[in-house]
């Protein structure tokens, strides 16, 4: 064992104590509950917010935050799900196209919930997928995030043009039937996705850590969001997904997520394990 107690849990680092105080203050004062988040990434993100907002340390940020509501949106934005990319992990979108959409096609109306939509990269990917499968007219996509700033960005559907090439390659690798450029306009340094893609997308604020069932869904997409949650919150949210899905509904998670420590995951069976696509077992 180490003789100085560091790293052994005997003497916590100042930053770890500050982080717990911050989490408590944010929850009690402003109602945002991050207590169920895994701490390593939370700490990294908060230290970045401290730096970008020009504070000396997390304690001074916490002190200011207690009295200055104006600081909260920046903090919440800094803690929200980061930027993704369109058709990230193309094989997953190919699996959705080939294994999930044909089943969804049997429903007269299709509800899809994308939980943690970040800047909208995946929600527009999904809209394109549905469009090409001829299912978009009868689909409603609910894209939620706890960060209003992220939702505003997602609603705009504007992405840097430097990412367009990678997005196009992903789109084709996912089995896209046209060319991605058919769905956006390039202007200056940006691409803006076709307004028509938004016609059945509903953006709404929802916090997985605090809010309840959002809709009755046939498919829930929540990729690389639960990785930020400690086991107990992960399990709680999987329970929320279970309660939100119709019988036989689908759940798609990030392709390195583990459900092995979540009892609520027993309600799901793997449809495509490597793409992390699961199906809610029909209740007996």
């Amino acid at each position: 064992m180490s003789d100085n107690g560091q790293g052994t849990g005997l003497r916590p680092e100042a930053e770890d104590i500050e982080l717990e105080a911050f989490v408590r203050a944010l929850k009690q004062r402003h109602g945002y509950d991050f207590s169920g988040y895994a701490r390593a990434s939370l700490k990294r993100r908060m230290l970045q917010v401290v730096q970008s907002c020009g504070f000396e340390n997390l304690s001074t940020l916490t002190g200011r935050m207690l009295r200055d509501d104006a600081l909260v949106p920046d903090i919440v934005a800094g803690l929200s799900v980061p930027v993704s990319e369109m058709f990230r992990n193309p094989t997953v979108f190919a699996a959705l196209r080939e294994e999930v959409l044909p089943v969804l096609a049997s429903y007269p109306r299709i509800n899809i919930w994308q939980a943690g939509c970040a800047h909208g990269e995946e929600v527009y990917s999904l809209a394109i997928l549905l469009e090409e499968a001829g299912l978009y007219e009868r689909s409603q996509i609910y894209a939620t995030d706890f960060s209003d700033a992220a939702l505003v960005r997602a609603q705009e559907g504007i992405f840097p043009i430097k990412d367009a090439r990678a997005y196009s390659e992903n789109y084709l690798a996912a089995g896209g039937q046209r060319t991605l450029a058919d769905y956006y306009h390039a202007r200056y340094e940006r691409i803006k996705l076709d307004e028509r893609l938004k016609r059945n997308i509903h953006f709404a604020n929802h916090n997985l850590a605090a809010d309840g069932v959002f809709c009755e869904a046939h498919l829930i997409l929540c990729r690389n969001v639960l990785i930020y949650f400690a086991n107990s919150l992960q399990n709680q949210v999987l329970g929320l997904f279970r309660d939100s899905l119709v019988r036989g509904g689908f759940l798609c998670l990030g392709n390195r997520e583990s459900l092995d420590f979540a009892p609520a995951a027993r309600a799901f069976t793997a449809v495509n394990a490597s793409a992390r696509i699961y199906r809610l077992a029909a209740r007996a």
């Binding site: 390593a40 993100r45 990785i227």
Partner: peptide
């Protein structure tokens, strides 16, 4: 993915910048 060691000593992943 970024690979991290969580406070409980287990692996954690992130897709942060």
């Amino acid at each position: 993915y970024h690979l991290l060691i969580e406070a409980d000593g287990c692996f954690a992943l992130s897709v942060d910048a």
